[in-house]
């Protein structure tokens, strides 16, 4: 056990899985950071420095730098997975899904189903999400709801270093395509993480706090923002259950239902947008299944229905903060 960053925990999972299974290969831009220049090898170790050091351990045959060609490289990863490898492809920003949608949403997601179950596609796509770095509208989105729309994909949104390591190991060993969404603002977050290899099953939410007055469901970085709100509310005598689903497909509805059954109040905090997003999805499921348990309308705390702006002042008002969560919780407590 030692204190590790979210970034280091992800790197450790990659390393363990590459040691464990020779069919695990990494595919992405600048992973070996990069190939072909006259200078230092492994200078970058990936655009997010997550894969630093791996090319030295596993060689260029297993850490494959790609041209700037998301469609071809993600497509190749799908083909390699269907042919029996366990590729881990890196899509630098989830926003870039625009140039490789067909590979993910049509090829990876539907390969097994379309061909009548003859194959499996054990592919992991690591991608990054989230606002907060003034990167603007095309480098800051939290697009995981888009992936969850498609049956055939599994979607992971880890909020902590411990969860990131265990869930990535599960993703790589899983026999289906998994989209693993890393929030860039969490890379430096540090906590105790076992040095040994471990896995965390998909579809099991983490109960971050137990309170009993209000159920707060939050995802990815919003778990930490919600935790701040929950602490402040506790000082005012409002005790919240805080639930982090950890995976949006599969979604652990049981844990959410159990909590809502007891509290009768639900606030969902999501960095994805307010339309067709995860918050809307969870709200719809709870409204349908648990209507009689609800004592107040469900509240969603999400960004506005707008692209992500770059200026810090605008971006700060885009991303949900603790005060908005506190206000939402208070509003459901009034009912």
């Amino acid at each position: 056990m030692s204190v590790k960053s979210y970034r280091a925990a992800i790197r450790e999972a990659l390393e363990h899985e590459m040691q464990r299974d020779p069919d695990v290969v990494l595919i992405g831009q600048d992973l070996a950071g990069g190939a072909g220049g006259g200078g230092e090898d492994d200078a970058w170790g990936g655009p997010m420095a997550v894969t630093k050091g791996l090319v030295g351990k596993f060689g260029r045959e297993r850490v494959l730098d790609t041209p700037v060609s998301e469609a071809a490289s993600i497509g190749a990863a799908v083909g390699a997975a269907a042919a029996g490898l366990r590729p881990v492809a890196e899509l630098m920003f989830c926003d870039f899904i625009g140039v490789c949608c067909d590979q993910i949403l049509n090829q990876a997601a539907k390969y097994r189903y379309t061909f009548g179950g003859q194959d499996q596609v054990p592919l992991t796509i690591r991608t990054t999400i989230g606002a907060g770095q003034q990167l603007g509208s095309q480098h800051s989105q939290a697009l995981y709801p888009l992936f969850s729309y498609f049956p055939g994909l599994k979607v992971v949104v880890p909020a902590t270093a411990y969860d990131a390591k265990g869930l990535l190991a599960t993703a790589i060993r899983d026999n289906d395509p998994v989209i693993f969404c890393e929030h860039r603002l969490l890379y430096r977050l540090r906590e105790d993480v076992p040095d040994e290899s471990y896995t965390i099953p998909f579809g099991e939410a983490r109960i971050v706090e137990e309170g009993g007055d209000v159920t707060v469901v939050a995802l990815s970085r919003m778990v930490h923002v919600a935790a701040e709100a929950v602490r402040a509310l506790r000082e005012d005598g409002i005790d919240c259950d805080l639930i982090d689903p950890r995976t949006t497909t599969p979604l652990d509805t049981d844990t959410i239902f159990d909590s809502v059954e007891a509290t009768g109040r639900l606030v969902i905090v999501d960095e994805a947008g307010p339309r067709c997003g995860t918050a809307s999805d969870i709200a719809a499921i709870v409204a349908e299944e648990m209507f009689n348990a609800l004592r107040a309308p469900i509240r969603r705390v999400t960004p506005p229905y707008a692209p992500v702006p770059a200026a810090p002042e605008l971006e700060r008002s885009y991303v949900p903060d603790a005060s908005r969560i506190i206000a939402a919780v208070r509003s459901v407590m009034e009912r």
Partner: peptide, 27 residues
């Protein structure tokens, strides 16, 4: 599509087979 024959079925949006074939070749 016949996996045992390594005959891979086509793509709805044409052309993706070129990328998938790169993956088969990599494997």
């Amino acid at each position: 599509h016949d996996a045992r024959l390594r005959l891979i079925g086509a793509n709805g949006g044409v052309g993706s087979g070129a990328a998938l074939a790169c993956g088969s070749a990599l494997a």
